[in-house]
Design a binder for these strands. Structure first.
Length: 280
DNA sequence: AACGCCGCCTGATCGC
DNA sequence: TGCGATCAGGCGGCGT
């Protein structure tokens, strides 16, 4: 799942490749990903627009564009479960399930999404619901604690709520809880202040480390040819999946204590943890 | 208002 | 071997 680190790595990759480029023809191959815009208005709004900046907010990609009339507006991207973005030469073959193609002269930006859960849209309302950025100063521990204190849900489930903290998904929720030594099953309101502080630190540490390690996202489509395409990072040196501590490691040994990692299901999602290192 | 559950999608895997 | 059934999972929407 593309989460904050994957999106950050992708944004850093796209930024120099897109800034200053002007959009020509706009192809919407799968209309649902641009909802609620209509294909015609989406295309006419984008056409002629110039990329001014590429930023990240939570798991969203913010493309700031400047129209011919020098009016700035945002194009919002979300990768959902299986979304990818590639800047490739204009004549390059396209991957299966290319949902939107923005032509940029000698190149093109391809938004590909196997399951079409993602978005590339002019509707910026989803940003209003987001909680603080965990890697910025906006991430306030006392507010984090206050919100956790009023929930009886397991902490793992709470961490997936984007209005609590923006950008954490299924992978890094498990990873952060492991690093903090907290059981994913523990009710949010039962965490001590000490545990909450430890968790906040762990969240930041895990996300930073994943960004530095290149996260788990393939940026180079030509290189993404492994059996499980998502877990292949083009240039082999940045292959962060191998450094995940618990995620997708059921039955394998915990690096901390040597006992087996366990997989459980919470709210219909897989959670991985070490029952020995993460008690409570 | 917190919380559980469904539907959206496709591809991988499972069961017969 | 082949083919249909099942499952995964971010997130919005809806009902309680």
């Amino acid at each position: 799942m593309p989460e904050l680190p994957e999106v950050e790595v992708l944004v850093r990759h796209l930024r120099p490749r897109l800034s200053g480029q002007r959009i020509g023809q706009v192809e919407v191959r799968r209309a649902k990903v641009i909802l609620p815009s209509k294909a015609s208005s989406f295309a006419s709004t984008l056409r002629g627009g110039k990329f001014v900046s590429v930023e990240r907010r939570g798991k969203f990609i913010l493309f700031r564009l400047r129209s011919i009339k020098r009016r700035d507006f945002l194009l919002l991207g979300h990768l959902g479960m299986t979304g990818r973005m590639f800047v490739v030469p204009k004549d390059a073959a396209e991957p299966k399930h290319a949902a939107v193609v923005l032509h940029l002269g000698k190149e093109k930006l391809v938004y590909q999404d196997t399951r079409y859960f993602g978005r590339l849209t002019l509707d910026t309302r989803p940003l209003e619901r987001l909680g603080p950025e965990p890697l910025s100063r906006d991430f306030d521990i006392s507010e984090f604690a206050r919100r956790l204190k009023r929930s009886a849900q397991p902490i793992k489930i709470r961490l997936l709520d984007q209005s609590l903290v923006a950008g954490i998904g299924n992978i890094y929720a498990s990873e952060a809880l492991h690093l903090a030594g907290i059981s994913p099953r523990m009710q949010a309101k039962r965490l001590s202040i000490g545990q909450i502080e430890k968790l906040a630190k762990a969240i930041r540490a895990v996300l930073k480390k994943a960004i530095a390690g290149g996260s788990t996202i393939p940026l180079d489509w030509a290189g993404a040819r492994a059996k499980n395409e998502f877990f292949y990072f083009g240039p082999a040196q940045n292959y962060y999946v191998e450094r995940l501590l618990v995620y997708d490691r059921a039955g394998k040994l915990c690096h901390g204590c040597g006992k087996q990692i366990r997989r459980i299901t919470q709210a219909a999602r897989s959670t991985y943890y070490c029952p020995s290192c993460q008690r409570g």
